[in-house]
Design a protein around this nucleic acid. Sequence first.
DNA 1: CTTAGCACTCAGTGCACGAGAGTGCTAACA
DNA 2: TGTTAGCACTCTCGTGCACTGAGTGCTAAG
Lengths: 337, 337
Amino acid sequence: MLTERQRAILQAVVENYIRYAEPVGSRTIAKTSGMNYSAATIRNEMADLEEMGYLEQPHTSAGRIPSEKGYRYYVDHLLTFEETTDQFLENLRSRFHRRFVELDDALRHAAALLSDLSHYTVVALGPEIVQARLRKLDFISLDEDRVVAILVTDSGRVEHRTLNLPEGLTYESLRELTERLNRKLSGTTIAALGQAIYQELARVMEEHRQAYVELTHFVQEMVAPKTEENLIIDGKLQILSQPEFRDVEKMRALLHLFEEPELLSHVLRQAERGITVKIGAEHELPELTPLSLVTGQYDLGQEQMTIAIIGPTRMDYARAIGLLHAVFVLFKSLKET
Amino acid sequence: MLTERQRAILQAVVENYIRYAEPVGSRTIAKTSGMNYSAATIRNEMADLEEMGYLEQPHTSAGRIPSEKGYRYYVDHLLTFEETTDQFLENLRSRFHRRFVELDDALRHAAALLSDLSHYTVVALGPEIVQARLRKLDFISLDEDRVVAILVTDSGRVEHRTLNLPEGLTYESLRELTERLNRKLSGTTIAALGQAIYQELARVMEEHRQAYVELTHFVQEMVAPKTEENLIIDGKLQILSQPEFRDVEKMRALLHLFEEPELLSHVLRQAERGITVKIGAEHELPELTPLSLVTGQYDLGQEQMTIAIIGPTRMDYARAIGLLHAVFVLFKSLKET
DNA sequence: CTTAGCACTCAGTGCACGAGAGTGCTAACA
DNA sequence: TGTTAGCACTCTCGTGCACTGAGTGCTAAG
């Protein structure tokens, strides 16, 4: 259990370190953070805090920096985040100038806005296609043997793929088939579509079986979640300007992470409702160890979206949480109007 | 005019520097490149080459490195690139395992392959949509007031956008309109589409004019070239591992370039037919000054594609040209079968 | 024209040294 | 008993200095 004074000192260390990225000494705290104790007293307390694991010392003659446990305590108990002011919200709204019909656009814009305001990298993930329902399936011929397959969901998402018209299938019979499929399968969730389409095709004449199987194949592929296109990353350069990534090797590791959208989207998919903070080694992925994520998941109608602000463990948690919160409030208000 | 010996020395310096990224001294050349002259002789020649501007000296007591003029001379007169062997081509073909129906996929794959083989970054640009012709325009309703507009070109490209159904336009009349537009405009080039669609709409009843104008707007926006989606970049990390980008600031500058797809796609659009090499300050863009581009433009049927290998000015031009050439040969052979 | 020899230059490395920041501990104080 | 002042100690960092090695330019001889 920490005493009130220890908590105050821990908070001072964390906030100072977040701000200046340099180990904090007892003198600095004694002078700045309006505490009426001498440096020596603070030194004693800091030694205790270090013993308890909240602080660390890079080397004997340096100040202290927060450990991950220290950040965790700070985030859980000490962090004060200001309620979003109406003025700030209005400011945000004005930067969100035009109305977005597509959620994807809105997310993209929100990510850009957040990375700009926070100076960290922002990752956003839209809803998975499998939750949506089939609105229309269409095949459009390009020439004698090529066809574009287009699939539209009720959420307005469009997937398409070009394919070679399977042997022995005329464009006429394809059209017939399309009509039949649309009639039968409209409204099916995308998750169930692969199965449903196969069953439906099985009922159709045997002779063209092979051709239909090929078609199903394409639809299934089209429907498979494509993480890369789904994931939005903005402000990659922002986080790289943080002093912890001055080192070229660390920089490369981070860039590698951004090049693998599967990793990040996997992490974002596991997010819980609301705003959560994960610090350093709390992540499952070793790649994320030097990083912290402030993640927000939000429901917009039936659809889910997830936005995460990525920074070094020494990130400004209060600000990140505040900004994320504000953006969600904004989304909500936009939706209501 | 360079003597035969000077050319040999220049070539040796360039190739050595490309290989080891370190200034080349006269001794090294005398020893390695089978030249039967002493270091002193070579030193004299190198001094002359420096005076003529083909070589540079980082500081007095270092060896020489090629100047951009030196690289240019090397590329134009000294570089020998081996013809693509059938064996290598077969190797490439096997890594190009599945058949690509969509050019975009093929390009993406080619870029990945090239960056993997060359260890440089590869940028590829597919054909512009404006050259294609309208195959089908479709509006699909999602709910009472949202509609997805879908446009398909004869090259198999699909563009889509969600929009709010304009006031005073029923879904029925939209369907009518769609049919009419498809009948009239099918086969129009995308470049001409904006104009044509507007004229067509002008003929339709005045009462719904406003609604139609809104629709045209959307189609026009849909048709506007979207550089970001068009441009493929692979192997960003590859070039960053080159020693010239050890410096964090240079690294950031380069990453910045990759974050702005407009810049690169603009550069690629200006490429000439065939394979060209641009070195350092020969580029118009100051951002590209520390870089060289080996760019290939190739016609595939009516469609154009451009692929560029990006490296430091000290890049392996022979290898880059050879690889690019091989990929184009491969594309050609794939198309014929 | 070519080469050997030599003095010279300069980046890079290792080392010593002092300054500065910060600590831990002890002893005195309230 | 908690707080504070004082002081010796530790460690990083920057600077100056000497030394090394790679490479050059120039001169004179072959």
